[in-house]
Design a protein around this nucleic acid. Structure first.
Lengths: 240, 240
DNA sequence: GCCATTTTGTAACAGCGTGTAACAATTGGC
DNA sequence: GCCAATTGTTACACGCTGTTACAAAATGGC
């Protein structure tokens, strides 16, 4: 019985990104773009926890949290802006159980959800339920829990750590153009003074390894002046 | 009946600042400068929540939190360094209920304490703590109660204390990259002045013993510039 | 307490991964 | 078609990690 999470955010991209990440971690997820949709979902589904954006047009996260707290004990995690002490304090005071500051590491949301639910005794600690993060594209299999890439013919392709991180970032965000800066951030290889053309080198190296089996152009496309995009359709799943 | 908080921090100034602020907000407060004092207070007073500094000489916050969580449900709030995602995630995993990043606004600690206590008061205490302590991976069996490692062919493999602790830390957190620093913390082998490359030696020694039976690269992977990750899928269970 | 053995940590070096610099190829605006 | 800007490729230097050797510390039997 997997916990059921409701993600409320007017920003569709963030909403779907968080939802996908949570699904990959074994949660059942519904989404809502505003307070109206949120209330509709809450009326029709039994939700275990709400992830709620602080800043939204119309009714914002704090108001929604305050209202929700009047009628329900459903735990709430607020997505706040970094550096806003008073937002966080007021959020906690109106009844939020926790917050995560944007920009966020999706894994932190997972950890926080588990911590909150653990206290609610809705979910045992993660060691008891191993779920793996697997991405499938064009016959390739990317397993992020074992850091292993398997080619369409079943052979294992050895990637360097940099290459693996890069491919993981892409596979988690198919169809989205990612700038060099974003790729450096997302792969956690942003260092002060790093010349951002180094990402081009890493992409070339990754493409070279993929190209042994598949036309790499169908996997990673260059978007001139903007960055790179993972062009292969991705199926994400939890493996058994 | 005001909640009773224990503040643990080696830095006297921070300790007394937090204590004074909490007293001004209606909490009863005790303080401790280290793990020894903390345990002494916990033996003699009924504490409702512990505020625990992450970085302390000798036994640090993560180790203390881990130990405390083995025997008690007392909520813990960690004071962490700003910007360390994996510190926060690992902290939540070893059982902390929350964290506050330094430098902090004392009012945020108050809000967090209230939020955590509100949650704790909504829950009955755990009946008995059943923790998983047998881990199965690639045919190996790690029994943490008897501190015994059994190979896929059934033979017992002798590990040193250091090697065993290290393998246990990994098996509890499959698929997560753990830095050298974190590994030193989680294995409770953090000593002042220890050259942090010593962990590489321990890992090499563990790998050598595992490699007699299994390709060790499939079990513990190096993630360059970040640390090491347990790549084998783990099934955890409570032994009979 | 002594001492042999085991465990752990440090130093040095080799091999590999990553980032930079330079140059080649491609792209797109005019 | 021209050309400046952008991206791809090659070569190389430096830093990170694995291994070996040895020293220091810890352990346990007598």
């Amino acid at each position: 019985m997997e916990p059921h999470i409701l993600v409320v955010d007017d920003d569709r991209e963030i909403r779907e990104l968080v939802a996908r990440h949570l699904r990959n971690n074994g949660f059942q997820v519904d989404t809502a773009a505003d307070g109206l949709e949120m209330r509709k979902v809450l009326k029709t589904a039994r939700i275990d926890l709400v992830v709620l954006d602080r800043v939204m047009p119309g009714e914002d996260g704090l108001s929604l949290c305050r209202d929700l707290r009047k009628t329900s004990d459903t735990p709430v995690i607020l997505l706040t802006l970094l550096g806003s002490d008073t937002d966080r304090i007021v959020g906690l005071e109106v009844g939020a159980d926790d917050y995560v500051a944007k920009p966020f590491n999706p894994q932190e949301i997972v950890a926080r959800i588990r911590a909150v639910l653990r206290r609610a005794q809705a979910l045992p600690p993660s060691a008891g339920k191993t779920r793996e993060h697997v991405f499938l594209f064009l016959g390739w299999r990317l397993d992020c829990r074992s850091r292993r890439l398997t080619a369409p013919d079943g052979s294992v392709v050895t990637l360097t750590d940099g290459e693996f991180d890069l491919l993981q970032v892409f596979a988690e965000r198919p169809g989205i153009v990612l700038s060099r800066d974003q790729l450096l951030d997302l792969t956690s290889r942003r260092q002060p003074g790093v010349f951002d053309r180094s990402i081009d080198m890493q992409i070339a190296r990754l493409r070279r390894k993929l190209a042994v089996y598949t036309n790499a152009e169908e996997i990673i496309k260059t978007v001139r002046q903007r960055g790179y995009m993972f062009a292969a359709g991705v199926q994400a799943e939890a493996s058994t």
